[in-house]
Design a protein around this nucleic acid. Structure first.
Lengths: 107, 107
DNA sequence: CATATTCATAACTGGATGGTTATGAGAAAT
DNA sequence: ATTTCTCATAACCATCCAGTTATGAATATG
């Protein structure tokens, strides 16, 4: 079983995939053809990347005639934001402890 | 050439590596032996993971006698936080635009 | 000095992964 | 109906990667 957080990190680990997601964030919805034009790789490769992003919940697809429009689903980044927050909270906590210690030493 | 952001994402993509980093964040400094005890994999595997984390700037190592102490360097998460921020800003911006539009329509 | 401990590195292996070309499915156009 | 267009999937390949065992380097211990 693979956790959804794991899927998320793995999906974003590939730079080509991140670039696709970034473009969708910046420019909004785009077709596979449009995305392929700027990606520097073949259309099937782009489709596969989009499949991975979709599985991670990072993009949505919408079928319109013979083309598929993909769009970013920024909400899917939430677990990543939460995780970094948790990791940093401990840092801040330890920082606060240090401050407390210094304060107590000052008295 | 591999960007430092890329190194960061790739380093965190592996669940074993994330677990090691999380442990260092939670419990602070630890030796390779201690980390190996809880990792469920061989010591060389742990050492390799720590090497990857170190290269990504996520951990620091301190040699003391014959043991090496590793500690989390939470600051290294900054680019990740920035990136998620940038990706979400556009979402918020578009959200703000929608709010503006609704406001203007309301007048 | 000899031995034990702790970690890092080397060499290897199986499986995942990112790319390719070929092809098929479905919708539009002629 | 045939052709064209857009995308997804299949099959394949090279490379990367996470794990292993074996071993060496450096430090502590007897």
């Amino acid at each position: 079983m693979e956790s959804s957080t794991d899927l998320l990190f793995k999906a974003l680990a590939d730079p080509t995939r991140r670039a696709l997601f970034e473009r969708l964030c910046l420019d909004g919805e785009a077709t596979v053809g449009a995305l392929t034009a700027g990606a520097g790789i073949s259309q099937p490769a782009v489709s596969k990347h989009l499949g991975v992003l979709k599985q991670a919940g990072l993009v949505l697809d919408r079928h319109e005639g013979r083309q598929t429009h993909y769009s970013a689903q920024q909400r899917a980044l939430a677990p990543l934001v939460d995780w970094t927050g948790r990791m940093n909270r401990f840092w801040e906590a330890r920082f606060d402890d240090l401050e407390d210690l210094l304060k107590r030493m000052d008295q």
